[in-house]
Design a protein around this nucleic acid. Sequence first.
DNA 1: ATAAAATCTTGAACTAGTTCAAGAACATTT
DNA 2: AAATGTTCTTGAACTAGTTCAAGATTTTAT
Lengths: 194, 194
Amino acid sequence: MTDYQNILRNIKRYVELSEEDEQEFISIIKTSSVKKRQFIVQPNFVCEYQTYVEKGAFRSYFVSDEGEDHTIQFAIEDWFISDFNSYISQEPASLFVEALEDGIIHQIAYQDVENLCEKKPKFERFFRLVAQKSFAYAQKRVLSNLGKSAEARYIEFQAQYPTIVQRVPQYALASYLGMSAEFLSKIRKRLSKA
Amino acid sequence: MTDYQNILRNIKRYVELSEEDEQEFISIIKTSSVKKRQFIVQPNFVCEYQTYVEKGAFRSYFVSDEGEDHTIQFAIEDWFISDFNSYISQEPASLFVEALEDGIIHQIAYQDVENLCEKKPKFERFFRLVAQKSFAYAQKRVLSNLGKSAEARYIEFQAQYPTIVQRVPQYALASYLGMSAEFLSKIRKRLSKA
DNA sequence: ATAAAATCTTGAACTAGTTCAAGAACATTT
DNA sequence: AAATGTTCTTGAACTAGTTCAAGATTTTAT
């Protein structure tokens, strides 16, 4: 017996749902459990689903030609994650999405979402609001990447997402913040002494 | 007599519009002309509108505490621009949006858009698709900022947006690409010789 | 056409952040 | 509990990109 209360509550932060709406939405959810280090999205495969994290921690990242990896996003409980580019275009992904811990996810398929939006404008609205918020968030990130020093970026992130800092490996955080793992280690040491 | 063909064509790339839909949309558009160096969005004022560029070139940018400015976005003909964070939350802006040339813009107010979306799901859909695309684009930018050297970033941008490179001041481009204006000048020299 | 303002260039000195390498600490499997 | 794999730390040498300053060029206004 799967519990859909969390994901439904998430949606209800944006739009009201009738009992029937809830049932309709639940009917397209596919739930699964994942093991640490498992990939739920991989380059060259189309990212068919948007994934809601019921339990666990994930990251999406890109591996450059030089073999360095660059973290695009983290997601813990109550967040969505995917290779969004691949998802909306239904073209092959360029990112990995990897479980950083054992976890449980709810997935919704591209075509099911599009059909649902068509049928019930309420969901169209939900996905519009979420996409707008995500875009605003991504712009904010660009901004703080451009403006700030490596140390300032770390301090800001640590203030805003203390839980994530504790849960994800340091090399993944460093690659999210756009610095080498070694340098992040040095920053942390410097800050712990001050 | 104002011409709405371009903005309507833009929308019709995503959804079909009846004659009535078009009229409805046109009724909320406010058109104005702007002079070079004019601000259409300023910090501390709520960004009431999303702006469609009919003619001209714009940039949005942020001024940091140290007084450096960081370009977030450029927009030329057929693009939308705003302080999107301020627009969707209807809270005071933190960005400037400045005209880089004399131009003509079509603006649509937050509340008018929300009402229109409520009334006609077709527009809800349009704005969802646009927001999703914008988000995907912003993620791509984060990615190329993280992965690449200053020179590679410039080359990539130049390949993708040659028109913009020609139309905007170099210091604005440098601040978009996350490097000093001097360094961009040096990169260009280096490339022109090679 | 001239003056004033804005933008771009160049070199020299500097620094924030990288790379490499090797060991230490921690986690996971048997 | 030992063994293996994974992640984190530290220092030394390096480099991509910055800052400063001054002149050259282009644009804008009168």
